[in-house]
Design a binder for these strands. Structure first.
Length: 352
DNA sequence: TATGATT
């Protein structure tokens, strides 16, 4: 695992000058750090206290998936004092936390030109090292990070890697120049394309992630029946197994009038979602529930004056079994720092 | 902190 910014071994002149320390760099360039390879389970609080132990922090942010709230494994720290930023790099870069070795380096200024500059490379010769891969790509620009994935058991290269360039245009040039080309002495051509970015995850990928997080939450023995139910169904969904959920039989009889909303336009099963953040919006509900089946309506309930979410919302799903699956899967699901409570909406009306 | 409807 690399422990500093990979500049690439002495390559040709870079098309773009260094970003830091020149052309009127602001103070930010000396106080703002990016932290990579954080353990997946590290929280914002833990992140803050680790870097706060070095010195006063102006701001810090553990970056999380917008939809699931899962940590993306990196974050930013902005110190008040440039000396503390320097100290953080010297003392925390390379620190081993659980299975990860964290990387602490100065953050490049945020700009559109550095976005989407990460490449996915496959078909690499299994013998090619990270350094050799960097040599191959460095002719197209400044490499920020690189990685070759290895088999977890044998440690042998999987022939797949990632290259992040400083600039998107550099990445584009590398695709043009290297995609479909055979590296010197290689038998097969390599494939070079833009890496998927985590925000455009498919429903299947989201489900897999939900399953993984559920499995982690219930790492212990599964005594409780609802837990077993939840995991079984997530497994079934993840692998596309046809199932006939027991709760779809048991559940129906006990649910007279609950959740099923009337009216031709609004027909469907109404689900109550509690513990949304004040910033929650409709898109979060669409994206959380969409993977489970047909969603016809979502609504975040907001305070009329502040326009902030009041902590709950509603989702209408067409099919009972999909709604039950969504509830079983998402109830208790951690969205960011919050644990959602999800159930069929109960009706308060119809008392007389 | 807990079941809408400012369409």
């Amino acid at each position: 695992m690399e422990s500093q910014v990979a500049g690439g071994p002495a390559g040709p002149a870079l098309p773009n000058g260094p970003l830091l320390g020149t052309n009127g760099a602001t103070d930010d360039s000396k106080t703002n750090l990016i932290v990579n390879y954080l353990p997946q389970n590290m929280t914002q609080d833990e992140f803050k206290s680790l870097f706060g132990s070095i010195g006063d922090i102006e701001s810090c942010k553990l970056v999380r998936d917008k939809i699931t709230g899962q940590s993306l494994g990196y974050g930013f720290v902005n110190y008040s004092d440039p000396n503390d930023a320097d100290k953080a790099i010297n003392t925390l870069n390379g620190l081993k936390l659980q299975t990860k070795t964290i990387k602490v380096s100065y953050a490049r200024p945020s700009s559109a030109s550095i976005r989407d500059a990460n490449l996915y490379v496959s078909g690499l010769p299994k013998t090619m090292s990270q350094k050799e891969m960097e040599q191959l790509f460095s002719q197209y620009g400044r490499i920020i990070t690189s990685r070759i994935l290895v088999d977890q058991v044998t440690g042998v290269s999987r022939g797949v890697g990632f290259i992040r360039f400083d600039k998107r245009i550099e990445a584009e040039e590398a695709i043009k120049g290297l995609n479909g080309q055979k590296p010197l002495g290689a038998a097969e051509p390599i494939t070079v394309k833009f890496a998927n970015n985590p925000s455009q995850k498919t429903g299947q990928a989201l489900l897999t992630q939900l399953y993984q997080s559920s499995a982690r939450r219930y790492a212990g023995p599964l005594h409780h029946q609802t837990q077993r139910f939840r995991l079984d169904n997530l497994l079934n969904m993840a692998y596309g197994v046809k199932r006939f959920s027991p709760i779809a039989i048991d559940g129906m009889s006990g649910l007279a009038g609950v959740g099923l909303s009337g009216g031709a336009a609004g027909a469907g099963w109404c689900i109550f979602v509690y513990n949304l953040s004040p910033e929650a919006d409709e898109s979060v509900l669409w994206q959380l529930f969409g993977p489970f089946g047909a969603v016809t309506n979502v609504k975040v309930i907001r305070d009329f004056t502040t326009n902030k979410c009041k902590g709950f919302g509603f989702v209408t799903m067409t099919n009972y079994d999909e709604a039950a699956m969504a509830i079983a899967s998402l109830n208790g699901y951690r969205l960011g720092e919050r644990v959602l409570q999800v159930s069929f909406k109960t009706s308060k009306q119809h008392k007389a």
